[in-house]
Design a protein around this nucleic acid. Sequence first.
DNA 1: TAGCTCGTTGGACAA
DNA 2: TTTGTCCAACGAGCT
Length: 473
Amino acid sequence: MSDASPILVWIRRDLRLTDHAALSAAAASGRPVIPVFLNDEAVQALGAAPRWRLGLGVEAFANTLAGIGSELVLRRGDALECLGRLVDETGAGAVYWQRSYDPVQQARDSEIKAALRGRGLEARSFPGHLLFEPWTVETKTGGFYRVYTPYWNAVRGRDPGAPLGAVTALVAPRAWPAGDALSDWRLGAAMDRGAEITRAHVRPGEAAAQDRLHAFTAGAVGAYARMRDIPAVSGTSRLSEHLTHGEISPRQAWAAGMAAMERGAAGAETFLKELVWREFAYHLLHYTPHIAHANWRPEWDGFPWNTDPDRSEVRAWIRGRTGIQFVDAAMRELYVTGYMHNRARMIVASYLTKHLLTHWKIGLDWFADHLVDWDPAANAMGWQWSAGSGPDATPYFRVFNPVSQLDKFDPDRAYVRRWIAEGRAKPAPEALSYFDAIPRSWGLLPGDPYPAPVVGAEDGRKRALSAYENRGF
DNA sequence: TAGCTCGTTGGACAA
DNA sequence: TTTGTCCAACGAGCT
């Protein structure tokens, strides 16, 4: 193979042209570049909403590539087989991709890299999904961090480097290999009829990501430290759906946050800390991969969680019918929009795991199936933190009271009014849209009476505390 | 090594 | 209404 052979750039969770190391390196080579997206086992393993949202992102990115005269070739099947076939068809001499940090995918990527190199191909992976490679952050004694604040102190002064400029041109191959039609993949098939409703709430694509970052760092970041906790207000960056699909790089967000801090924006440091929480989640996933599926603290293995996902209490939680307004509003926001405000995530997680004494894995699975911004590391860390089984020194008696939380963070009930229709003469359009989105088989109507709490705020707290006292560790 | 400080996101209650 | 204090105890991480 000659130096002029094409380079395959295997696109995964990096649906962008800016700050994309693999595409930039391929572009700089001057050789033909063939961007490829594979509907492989990793895509098939995604939950319904993340898979659907990924499809929208892929569509947007294919259009972006078309705008610079390139294409996104779509193939379906086992990743290594697909790549091997594409090498045969195109005469490619190299395969580049952006690194993945999920341990399962990392192991698969290593095998693929070895197999490609075994064929005499150049196989290169590039960083970019994180600010810092997880293995480059160590304690002074050479271990990994289990507590956020020391982790933050270790990385806050680090320079992740300036974002790379956008790729503006790619040399096309002599002939494009054939590809699938995205619509044939039916990535949204598991979304049922709810997808049409959720579609109005997502903003796929790199351009949307840039718009959101600019709008946030020019505006809401100032009051971020305070307003990010109010779920009825647009006080957050809303970058999560873009970061998880790589429609923007964390380095771009970091650079914009640093610039805001230099301008004196009060909430900028809090925003940078949130970006570092994302890093910390991947740090933990890297060093303790069991965080994704088992109690991070094994002493919790003996705790008598309720593990039946068909219990009526769990069904009420899922359907937003617990009778606890904050919980129900949040669960409906999730169902309709594919998103849930961060404070609401903590409250529904606390209610499920503490008031309902339900295993965090049931909540983790529901989120993995319904969040358009689902992230394997953040989801696992968040649920285990809430449940108390994770890497944190949260005292066991720290149980969120979903009623007093409402007074603190939704004092005028704007969030509740937006999402709960029952008992109102003129429900909000969002509240009504919930009933359009859910399956008819749930048998719910906006005119139903609002339920009494399945477990009251105070009763649940007492029950959880006594369960923890008897936990035997 | 040993000692020290501290821990994202809270609640209840008293003053 | 707001503010302060206690609620356990332990392990992480630093010095």
